[in-house]
Design a protein around this nucleic acid. Sequence first.
DNA 1: GAAATAAGTCAACATGGCTGACATAACCGA
DNA 2: TCGGTTATGTCAGCCATGTTGACTTATTTC
Lengths: 196, 196
Amino acid sequence: MTDLNEPLTQDQKSPEAKLRGNGRPARKRASVPEAKLLEFAELLFFAYRDFTRDPDAILKDFGFGRAHHRVLHFVNRHSGLRVVDLLDILTITKQSLSRVLKQLIDQGYIVRQAGSSDRRERLLFPTGRGRALAERLAAPQLVRLASALKATGPGAEVTLRRFLEAMVNAEERPKVSSIMASSPVPLKEGGKEEEA
Amino acid sequence: MTDLNEPLTQDQKSPEAKLRGNGRPARKRASVPEAKLLEFAELLFFAYRDFTRDPDAILKDFGFGRAHHRVLHFVNRHSGLRVVDLLDILTITKQSLSRVLKQLIDQGYIVRQAGSSDRRERLLFPTGRGRALAERLAAPQLVRLASALKATGPGAEVTLRRFLEAMVNAEERPKVSSIMASSPVPLKEGGKEEEA
DNA sequence: GAAATAAGTCAACATGGCTGACATAACCGA
DNA sequence: TCGGTTATGTCAGCCATGTTGACTTATTTC
């Protein structure tokens, strides 16, 4: 539609060309052609589809779903985060979070404790049981990632990291960075846990 | 728990080391440390979360959901695929597919036509309306991908493509390749469409 | 002609999003 | 100290999209 001006064939058009809306060449470097970008979109879908497959199967045995995995993952990786942090990460409503979080707490995978500086806050920690399940769910994903990185060859890590960071909304990037920097190794939170 | 044997600090363990279960060095090259792999897992989550955000907002205006987007995307990109192909791609049941596909057909975004060699098959094609919506949904994703690739720098395309392909289940890779090779530019299916 | 295949349908159920309304406790500023 | 704001939690109901199981129809294949 409305591509009467461009004598380019379909698979040479680029998003920038469309946004420029004229026939002049790009200022710096030609962008990736649209057809190739669509292939990346598809590959991303297939990669993510299979990335979530293994943990989903394990979760079923526990009567949990993917939502539980996400919560448990972030609580395990970033022990002591607040409920509001989790809401921000997952971008869901507190009512949706509440449902799965409650189950994880009731079944002894996560504990809640009041913040010391602000006692309204509820800080979330994994129990030993929670850590064990989080690790079990992560295991197949880590194997997949490790072997994919290896298959990709040298430079894969740096390139991939840059790409994934750039895929995140610009306004979200500082938040994401600060989350990823926080307690990258689960804290020994010192307190005694109520193990089941 | 049960990590009494390994004197390694947490962020030096690797999936291979865990699978080897002994202290000897890896045969060829040290794999990416577990902590780094976990960061990739998180970044993948954040990237995919934001990747789907823009089209989701557009879909809402049409009373559609992400499931409709997936169906419309693949029908548009690979015109003439069969229902069974779609089931295989999406990895959902035909009852789930049926619900969204029916809506897309009823509302004039997709047409169905009997296969010529095997008349049991129903081949799926986008209408003009379907192509328009598919393109509108894809647009923000393509812009995001293009700018992320640009930000990543030279070599990003090759590396990313290899990585994403390696993330797909090994048994699925031939299927994925053949899907991606099929009608990468929407076919002009020649026939007249029933546009609304 | 029988079996297998491609597609479609009905019914019921589970998960995990959503909105809206409201309650409680704690903090914070005037 | 009081009143507003913030962090959290909860109830109720709705919607989208996944599931299983059973069954039908048309067509191809052996």
